[in-house]
């Protein structure tokens, strides 16, 4: 089984999720409708709905709550993208103008808040308090993670734990929730739900570390921006953290981070030294360790077709290069 085979097998269900997304975002106000639907049409991997649909295979995947959960998760992700573009001052996303670039920051606030409220309204029909407590905790932690990221910008003294907590909140929790909701909304036991939650969590940690590595080693064409963009914006990710623990590098990285207006050449030199330091290899090792923990958990789940599909997704995350 391959990743494209998994997408193919879930094609009709993913299409149904897409139709539902289009339906809930088609509202009377033309501006809100256009802003939301443009974002939807820009596409994306839809990894979160896919995980939900797959994990629902452990129970009854035909339940309405399964689709509602998948739609809700993608709506939350979309809402956070609209607001992230204001935070990052980004004018392009997936090659298309962002809501804030096409209209302005205020419209981006209205659109994000609207989509987020839509997601919550949709899930409020689910009659399961455990589900609501889980979703609302993750959403709260997501926003706390984003605030932490701003707080820790340019803080070269931060430790590994700080970084891991940040990526947990930023990425891993939503992946964990995607898997857990698939299980709970399809009627699985809390025990299976919890195992899938941790599978998604480890997958998410590995996914974000890989993203942070790719930011250093990707080409400008692959990334759509110069390499090392995170560090240039003051965001200290795992490769930088590992590089700073190497003799001689800490001082030069710190010097650039503390410089109020470093030149492009200074940034390029620091990014090059991080790449050459072995920090990328160390980061990959940690990413793989998380992935392995997720794979180990799969062995505790029923050995059915979907378990194999989840393994394929884990392998893809471990080898992806864009």
């Amino acid at each position: 089984m391959t990743l494209s085979r998994i997408y193919l097998e879930k094609k009709s269900k993913l299409k149904s999720v897409e139709r539902e997304l289009e339906s809930v975002l088609s509202v009377a106000n033309p501006l809100l409708s256009e802003a939301s639907l443009d974002l939807l049409k820009a596409g994306g991997k839809r990894i979160r709905p896919l995980l939900t649909l797959l994990c629902a295979e452990y129970g009854d995947p035909e339940r309405k709550a399964v689709k509602d959960s998948a739609v809700m998760l993608e709506l939350i992700h979309m809402a956070s993208l609209v607001h992230d573009d204001v935070v990052d001052d980004s004018d392009l996303r997936r090659g298309k103008p962002t809501v804030k670039a096409q209209w302005n920051n205020r419209v981006a606030m209205f659109t994000g808040d609207f989509i987020f409220a839509k997601a919550i309204e949709l899930i409020s029909d689910v009659d399961n308090l455990e589900v609501h407590r889980s979703i609302s905790r993750v959403i709260r932690d997501l926003s706390l993670g984003e605030i932490d990221q701003i707080k820790e910008l340019y803080h070269w003294k931060q430790n590994l734990r700080t970084y891991l907590r940040r990526i947990k909140r930023k990425t891993a929790l939503l992946m964990a929730l995607s898997c857990q909701l698939g299980a709970l909304s399809s009627g699985c036991s809390s025990e299976i739900g919890l195992k899938l939650y941790y599978f998604g969590y480890y997958l998410g940690m590995s996914y974000q570390i890989t993203d942070d590595i790719l930011d250093f080693i990707g080409t400008k064409k692959q990334l759509g921006k110069p390499a090392g963009g995170d560090l240039r914006n003051g965001n200290i990710t795992l490769p930088t953290y590992f590089a700073m623990n190497r003799y001689g590098l800490r001082k030069s990285i710190r010097k650039v981070l503390e410089n109020k207006n470093p030149s492009h050449e200074q940034w390029d030199a620091v990014i090059h030294s991080i790449r050459a330091s072995g920090a990328i290899r160390d980061s990959e090792q940690l990413s793989n360790a998380y992935l392995q923990k997720g794979i180990d958990l799969l062995e505790q789940l029923p050995q059915v077709k979907v378990t194999h599909a989840l393994r394929v997704i884990a392998d893809y995350i471990g080898t992806r290069n864009y």
Partner: peptide
């Protein structure tokens, strides 16, 4: 500006979080 966006998001998440804990969906 960044924190205006993010703190607003935090408060929006918080109402759901507190009401879910009070079981008032």
């Amino acid at each position: 500006r960044q924190l205006t966006v993010l703190s607003g998001d935090f408060y929006s998440a918080l109402y759901y979080y507190t009401l879910a804990r009070q079981s008032n969906i």
